[in-house]
Amino acid sequence: MNEPLCPAYSVLRLLSGKWKPAILYHLREGSLRFGDLRRSLPGVSQKMLTAQLRELEADGVVVRSVMACVPPRVDYALSSLGLALLPLLQQMDDFVQENREFFPSEEG
């Protein structure tokens, strides 16, 4: 396996996907059920959210827990790797805030 041209590519691969940073943002406070997570992300389809969560789980960023109850309950939470990414996401947010003139709002 070849080394990436820049070590940051490995982290960017974990975060690549329109909804992944937003998913991590919403899970920072604790675990959420799928429906709660979907309601907190207006505009994401069920199919897309499922795909993004599966990728995050496969990469070890998110942990999926199935509770044995009726109806079955599925919770998602950040793994230790996901928690380790939070300071990086905060730095990215700080960067955007400090350089707002280069990042026009998507709201209008």
Rank of each mutant, 00 (worst) to 15 (best):
M1N: 08
N2C: 08
E3R: 04
E3Q: 09
E3P: 09
P4V: 05
C6M: 04
P7G: 04
Y9T: 06
Y9P: 00
S10F: 01
R13G: 01
R13T: 06
L14E: 03
L14I: 11
S16V: 02
G17N: 01
K18R: 14
W19D: 00
K20G: 11
K20F: 05
P21W: 01
A22P: 00
I23E: 01
I23M: 04
Y25I: 02
Y25P: 00
H26I: 04
H26W: 05
H26G: 03
L32G: 03
L32T: 05
R33T: 15
G35F: 06
D36R: 06
L37N: 02
R38T: 14
R38N: 07
R39C: 11
R39E: 15
L41V: 06
L41T: 01
P42T: 09
P42Y: 07
G43K: 03
V44W: 01
S45F: 09
Q46D: 12
Q46F: 05
K47T: 13
M48P: 03
L49Q: 08
L49M: 09
A51R: 10
A51V: 12
L53F: 08
E55K: 08
E55T: 15
L56E: 10
L56A: 12
E57H: 08
E57K: 11
E57P: 03
G60N: 11
V62Q: 10
V62Y: 12
V62K: 12
V63T: 14
V63M: 12
V63I: 14
A68C: 11
V70A: 11
V70E: 13
P71F: 06
P72T: 15
D75H: 15
D75E: 15
Y76P: 14
Y76G: 07
L81T: 15
G82C: 08
G82M: 10
L83R: 01
L83N: 09
L85Y: 10
L89M: 15
Q90Y: 09
Q90V: 14
Q91Y: 01
Q91N: 09
D93K: 08
F95A: 02
F95Q: 00
V96E: 04
Q97A: 07
E98R: 08
E98F: 02
N99W: 04
R100S: 02
E101I: 02
E101P: 00
F102D: 02
F102Q: 00
F102C: 07
F103V: 10
F103N: 04
P104C: 05
E107P: 06
E107Q: 05
